[in-house]
Nucleic acid binder design. Structure first.
Lengths: 204, 204
DNA sequence: CTCATAACGGGACTCCAGTTTCGTTAATTG
DNA sequence: CAATTAACGAAACTGGAGTCCCGTTATGAG
């Protein structure tokens, strides 16, 4: 059986191969959080992961490609959503979660780095889109429940409401130097809730 | 007079020096829009600008540093704001402006690239923050006028309202593959207006 | 207009990110 | 458990990004 056309790691994905992947992804996350996307070389990641650099180049090839795989991994680790019984409560819970993530030095830097990487290659961008699509869909039901309770008008784009909560937090992270505090999270949730109630997210 | 401690271009900023700067910044913008932030080398920019690569390395040194200067240049080219007489009208005008910019292939790619660059170095990040600070302050008066007309409660953070218009557009640009159309712009403006009227942006 | 030198630019040079080679280890199959 | 070969990893290699040197151009001061 020839394997020239198969990606390395697909035929014998067991033991060592899996171990190498998780060590490399771990190291990649660390390196991205510490140095950022630009000054990142795969040899450094290989050293951290205690893996041969040949292996990293063979399996991932480029930094953006490695980040794409990292995003697939991140997408699999899903955090469970909480329920509070009111739209504002649920949205605040979501906003706080996002805020805590982005305000955390390691996680915040990591998210900046993966976003930067996603702007540089289509494949990585797609992995990022999938990651956020999963997260948004995870939280969308809380808006659906609000519709059923009559808090929000019928025909509201539920996913757009969830995105509206995150958007100002990411915008602040990227375009201002301001700290992301709980007040920012609450404001984002309140603004999204108010706009949703006013029917701003009705499908066009 | 020694000049070892002065940056090149500061003592004789006239004719040639200025011409080189604008040619290089123009080329840098083109290159960023075409190739993105990652696969960018200064030699290519020098070639496009018809300038010696030694000059580019001497004056800017790194890609992120060059992007920082590009952002200073972009910040100086300010677009005049229109006035419609209502908060929603003004915010829609702003949203449409941002949407058109980000939806434009060249400009959209360029903005993605400068954001990516800003995540990689503090100096570049600061230049980006300044850029957005200027843009936000340019449009903030329309919210102030809305306060004076009684459309929006006293004590509202006027700049935050402007940011709330852009935020979902940038969020969509970066985290989804969806096209940025006029409907997205209008929705962003309507959501920000509704939230502002509801007092979601009162200073904490 | 003249002079001093800031700033530019071609070309040689260096160094390391990324590749290639080939021997070693261990995952899978029967 | 033995055989096959996928996947790994050390070491040598290479190309081009970034640096250095030094002669040339042209700015700004007097």
């Amino acid at each position: 059986m020839r394997s020239e056309d198969a990606e390395p790691g697909t035929i014998r994905p067991g033991g060592r191969t899996a171990r190498v992947r998780s060590a490399v992804l771990q190291a990649a996350g660390d390196a991205l959080a510490e140095h950022g996307f630009a000054q990142l070389d795969l040899a450094d990641i290989a050293r951290r992961a205690e893996v041969g650099k040949t292996t990293v180049y063979r399996r991932w090839g480029t930094v953006t490609s490695l980040v794409a795989d990292l995003l697939v991994d991140m997408a699999e680790q899903s955090l469970p959503r909480t329920e509070t019984g009111s739209l504002l409560g649920d949205l605040k819970a979501n906003a706080r979660l996002v805020q805590r993530t982005l305000a955390d030095p390691r996680q915040g830097a990591l998210f900046k780095a993966v976003i930067a990487a996603a702007t540089c290659e289509a494949k990585t961008a797609e992995a990022l889109h999938t990651f956020y699509d999963i997260r948004v869909k995870e939280w969308a039901p809380c808006v659906q429940q609000a519709i059923e309770r009559g808090e929000v008008p019928e025909g509201t784009d539920v996913q757009e409401v969830i995105r509206a909560v995150s958007a100002p937090l990411y915008y602040r992270l990227l375009t201002t130097g301001d700290r992301l505090d709980e007040a920012a999270a609450d404001q984002a949730a309140e603004a999204a809730a108010a706009a949703a109630r006013a029917g701003a997210y009705l499908r066009g």
